[in-house]
Amino acid sequence: MVASMFNAGVLRRTILVLGLLIIVVLQLFPLVWLVNFSLLKSGDFFGSDVLKWPNPFQWVNYKNAFTLGHVPAYLLNSAIVAAIVIVVTVIVSLMLSYVIARIQWKGNVVLSGLVMVCLIVPIYSTLLPNFFIFQKINLIDNYLSLILPNIAFLIPISVFIFIGFLQTTPRAIEEAAVIDGLSLLGIVFRIIMPISKPVIASVGVLAFLNTWNEFIMAITYISSDKYKTLPFSLIQFTGQYASNYGAQFAVMTLIALPSVVLYMLFTDQITNSLTAGAVKG
């Protein structure tokens, strides 16, 4: 009796471990595959092997990525754009969501409605109008032509997340601060900002991932090498027909690396960001 119970426990545990193991393998496989194929010759692709030991290792793919793919220059551009987008998005959406969540005034309903509406605007419908506008005001082919629309698309979702958080935090601290004579901006930046650090981290990560992977706006608004972002490295190796797959995989590995590292560092925040807005809408 005891033995069978013990067995049942072991069995349950084994099944659980096995199940989790399968999930781990499924999750990790694309990454392993990506790294593996980034070290192969283009001619080895589409073969019958799922994974193939590189013989010899094609480090030249990485060399090509760095030199011909302009990875360092484009990486810098991506970093500049991402950094500005994150900072501006966080500050602006925090202020905006404070207004919507805490201050009672006439335009509140309209304002929150507007933000909600912006959530559903598809990027594609804005490409042509934005191109015309940027063209007119000389912002085309410029960091700003990437930064501004990226921020615009991130604000609604960030505000949504911030409001969800603010509605769950008690007002007592702010009331105390007002009594002690703190100004409105003071409340936002000296009280709300510190207590919403975890949410700010989630919004930051969300903004980073979105900006980092953004491509359709970049190919529409950017034409000179000077402002191209990382995804352009990838198409650098696209031929008209066949492509240099090895180098493309090397670039993809390099692009994925910051995201993977970031994900490892901020796992909790990213998971929170997915649920933060869901508590109260």
């Binding site: 283009s42 001619g43 080895d44 692709f45 073969g47 027909y241 066949a242 492509s243 797959y245």
Partner: peptide, 10 residues
């Protein structure tokens, strides 16, 4: 495209 090309090339 690449698949067909590699099939022949290999």
């Amino acid at each position: 495209y690449g698949g067909a090309r590699n099939l022949f090339g290999q």
